[in-house]
Simulated assay, not measured.
Amino acid sequence: MIKERELRVLSALDTPKGRQELADELNYREGTVSDALNDLAQRDLINKERAGNRIIAKPGDARCVEVFQSLTKSNPHIDFPDLLTPSLLNILYYLSSDKGWTATELAEQTGHARATIYRGLRTLTNRAMAVKQHSQYRLTEAFNELHVFAYELQHHTHRTQIKQDIGSGTIVWESHEEFLVRTETEVEQSDYHRTGLDAFAEHGLQFFTTSEHYYFYSAERESLRPEDLFCHLLLIENDSRHRKYALLLAAKTNLSPEHLKAAADEYGLTEIVNPLVEFLQTEGKKSSEATPRWDEFETLADEYEVEL
């Protein structure tokens, strides 16, 4: 997570500056500034260029840098580097002016203790950056950029990690700590779990696949559950063919409706997954535009030796 000193240097880079200039402005030692610049450069948040014997730092073109500098220019009286602690940035990743959250919901999402959540929310409400209405908190419109910055910073962090770990890839889905990436590179690192149709082979379902690979990054999970694979496939491509393959996996692994619906909530797929669950539960009696005909699905299941 980005540190206070890095945020102070980023805030000071309203124009390109050298190390000594930043040290004088921030009252830091040159070594401290140098360490901060190296960290920011490693995160692709700044660019460093040589001008004679000097190294000049410039803000990068990442969206999060643009938003952060907009915040600091619009609110010069607020010490954002001191305010934006790692735990508060985690809260702000979810908290916006568009949706209200209870402290309990934020604790569940972030993994922080409720005391930490209440402390962060109190900081925001005391500064009139957030309001509380009927036990729900939301940011004020004037400070919604705090949410945008926290979200864009984490998105940029994921992109930088992909660049460093596997070279290139496209993010298909992400949360604060995890992401689903499409890449043409085979990945062997333990935190990258193979997903998509390639991973269905682990459950006895072999499909023709393209040269693209899909991986789910998670430092916490040791493996992916069938319900994860089900949801990942719909995140990758929610068309009739992929929905049928997802249904085959659910039938093959005897996925419980409860586990599948819980996973759908986690990935933001509730409206897509619920009709598919009902289709399986009722053996096609409850169908929708998103589901195949039951006889068509039976034929497909027979082809792949899946008992319904």
Rank of each mutant, 00 (worst) to 15 (best):
H193M: 07
R221Q: 13
V148H: 13
R5C: 12
F68A: 00
Y28A: 05
E186A: 15
I236K: 01
I91L: 12
L40T: 05
E152C: 06
S218C: 05
A262F: 10
R122N: 11
Y304L: 08
S97F: 08
S34T: 12
H77G: 06
D79S: 06
Y137M: 05
I117E: 01
I117V: 12
L280M: 07
D228Y: 00
D228K: 03
E227T: 14
A263F: 00
R243A: 04
E227G: 07
V148S: 06
Q133I: 11
Q42W: 02
Q281K: 12
P275E: 03
K286T: 12
I46V: 13
A41W: 03
T270F: 09
A262N: 11
H176P: 09
A301D: 00
R122I: 01
L233G: 04
K3R: 12
R5H: 15
G52A: 05
E298A: 06
V131G: 04
R182N: 04
K73A: 14
E21P: 02
D14V: 14
T209D: 04
N144F: 14
W101F: 15
E220Q: 09
K286L: 10
D98C: 08
R8I: 14
E66K: 15
E296A: 15
F207E: 00
I78H: 03
R138G: 05
Y94P: 01
L146W: 02
T185E: 13
Y118R: 02
E174Y: 15
L197P: 01
L83E: 15
E220A: 11
L229D: 09
R29A: 15
K48P: 00
A62W: 00
E108R: 15
A251P: 12
D24V: 07
T140V: 10
E174C: 14
T32G: 08
Y118P: 03
H158E: 04
I2K: 02
G31C: 06
S70R: 12
S288C: 11
L260R: 05
L300R: 10
S287Q: 09
Q69C: 07
E289N: 07
F297K: 00
D61H: 07
A57N: 07
Y94F: 15
A290N: 14
Y267S: 08
T102Y: 01
K286S: 13
A142I: 06
L300Q: 06
T72C: 11
K99G: 02
M1A: 12
L83C: 05
L276D: 06
V9Y: 01
L124T: 04
A219I: 04
E4M: 08
T170F: 06
R241N: 08
K58E: 00
H158V: 03
T210I: 13
V181E: 03
G167R: 03
D24Q: 12
R122E: 11
D191H: 11
F80D: 06
S288G: 13
T282G: 05
H134I: 12
I55D: 10
T110P: 10
L235E: 00
L180A: 09
N144M: 09
S223L: 11
S11M: 15
R293G: 13
P76Q: 05
T170S: 11
